[in-house]
């Protein structure tokens, strides 16, 4: 009985996704019909039409979020390593500061920094948007990588050095492959967070930088079921695709057969 309850809850939670995936194909669904009338995938037609420019915006958003992910990871890796293996003054304070964006909302911060961004010429362009996108994902990336580093420990890298490898070789052959699961988890998280951002892109980008979220949001706001569902389905599918491809790519890239030394 109890067993059934947990399955029931999960079923209820996942249930709404079914109509979501049906809506793009619906021609009409009058109340109180339980089964809709399917038509010609109006939503997808609109999506792929040249006039909507949606495909380009989608590709641009994917690209933007990938860039954000790469930069975030590049920043988070040394930071996580420093916290994992070094002791230094101010460590706790730094850890707390890195934690802040998880709890203190971006809404306030982005409204606060907006004026400065305008002043510095960072508003209404990609650079500013990328910069602001770095913030919400960083704490998660650092935390996940920190756990990875703590798990594998410092000794293995030292062992590699002892066997003659230099720092870069240790990083490439030993460290990165070992923290790969952490890198994949962190990248996935950061990508999804960035791709899902609406408010900060909208504010800092000023409407000039248009991401897919920004296309989707007004459709939901206006309650346009067919279009909103279509774009939502595309949104989710694109996330799934990028995550799966990224996962395979990273695993493949770092498997040892790729190394020429």
């Amino acid at each position: 009985m109890k067993d059934f309850f947990s399955k029931l809850i999960i079923f209820i939670i996942l249930l709404p996704l079914i109509p979501l995936m049906l809506w793009p194909f619906i021609a009409s669904w009058r109340w109180p019909q339980l089964i809709p009338l399917f038509g010609e995938a109006r939503g997808f037609k609109h999506f792929f039409s040249a006039g909507s420019n949606s495909v380009n915006i989608l590709l641009f958003s994917v690209f933007l979020s990938i860039v954000v992910t790469i930069i975030t990871l590049a920043i988070a890796l040394p930071a996580a390593k420093a916290i994992a293996f070094y002791s230094f003054r101010g460590k706790n304070m730094i850890k707390t500061i890195i934690l802040l964006p998880v709890i203190v909302p971006m809404v306030a911060v982005s409204m606060g920094i907006h004026v400065s961004f305008i002043y510095l010429g960072l508003a209404n362009n990609c650079i500013g948007v990328i910069l602001i996108h770095l913030i919400p994902g960083l704490p998660y990336a650092v935390r996940i990588l920190l756990n990875s580093f703590l798990l594998i420990g410092d000794d293995i890298a030292t062992q590699g050095k002892n066997l003659g490898a230099n720092s870069l070789q240790v990083l490439w052959h030993i460290t990165l492959p070992l923290i790969m699961p952490g890198v994949i988890a962190a990248s996935t998280m950061v990508y999804i967070i960035s791709f899902s951002q609406y408010f900060i892109t909208f504010l800092i980008g000023g409407g000039r930088v248009v991401t897919f979220s920004m296309l989707m949001f007004p459709l939901i706001e206006r309650g346009e079921r067919v279009l909103a569902s279509t774009y939502s389905v595309v949104f989710l599918a694109s996330i799934l695709l990028v995550v799966i491809v990224g996962d395979k790519a990273m695993k493949g890239f770092f498997s040892d057969s790729n190394f020429l030394v």
Binding site: A76, P78, A82, F88, I98, A108, V109, G112, I113, L138
Partner: peptide
């Protein structure tokens, strides 16, 4: 060394903190 490794993350976080201070 550790501080240098933390420099990039602190640069980004300083944007965050500046946002708060500015607010």
């Amino acid at each position: 060394k550790p501080y240098l490794m933390l420099l990039p993350v602190m640069v980004v976080m300083s944007v965050f903190i500046l946002g708060l201070i500015s607010a």
